[in-house]
Amino acid sequence: MNIEVSNEKSGDELKIHQVTEQAFLSAPYTDHTEHFIVDALRGAGALTISQVAKADGEIIGHVAISPVTLSGGTTDWFGLGPISVLPEYQGCGVGSKLMKSSLAALEAIGASGCVVLGDPGYYGRFGFKVVDGLVYPGVPAEYFQALSFSDEFPQGEVSYHEAFSAQG
């Protein structure tokens, strides 16, 4: 299967919404608001990186990266997610392509690093790791990880954009 990754373009919004909704439909540990979060990030102008994966010209995956705030005042850090792949394409390398492409794009714009909330076994493959002193309150520490583009990590509490509270 030939998978192409590119930046979101005008007209992709509805399909991204549908892909994101379907990707998390049967997922555990979610309140099924990921598609609303992406819409709210876009509406707030907070989608720093928004890339789609296509197979045969059809969108089958999406990744969103948006700014985060750190209590210590460190800037130029971002949060990855949601990352979505249609269920029938999960496990086929689509998510890996989206991860590598979006992280390269993030580094290219001069970001200091990226945080993610998710499976350490999956995200660890891309260099994410738990960092002592960098926390996201209310979640088990092993599920909150960071990737630095300079090997320097900030300290403090991380807050995601207010769009992450979108409910519909």
Rank of each mutant, 00 (worst) to 15 (best):
A44N: 15
A44S: 15
K97S: 12
L103K: 08
L106E: 08
G118P: 01
D56Y: 08
T33A: 13
T75L: 13
V85T: 05
A46G: 11
L98T: 07
Y143C: 13
G43E: 15
D151W: 01
L103F: 05
L47V: 12
F164R: 09
E34S: 03
Y123T: 10
P120M: 00
L103S: 05
Q51I: 12
P154A: 08
V158H: 06
L106N: 07
Y89A: 14
A64Q: 08
E34K: 05
K54A: 06
Q145D: 05
F153G: 06
G121Q: 06
L86Y: 02
C92M: 13
K54C: 05
Y89I: 08
G43H: 11
Y122G: 01
R42H: 08
D132E: 15
G113V: 07
A146E: 05
Y143Q: 14
A46E: 14
K129I: 02
L47I: 12
G127W: 05
G118K: 00
D132W: 00
Q90V: 05
S101T: 13
Y122E: 02
I37P: 10
S150E: 08
I109T: 15
I83S: 09
D56I: 08
I37Y: 09
I65V: 05
V52A: 11
G61W: 03
G72V: 05
E58S: 12
G124S: 04
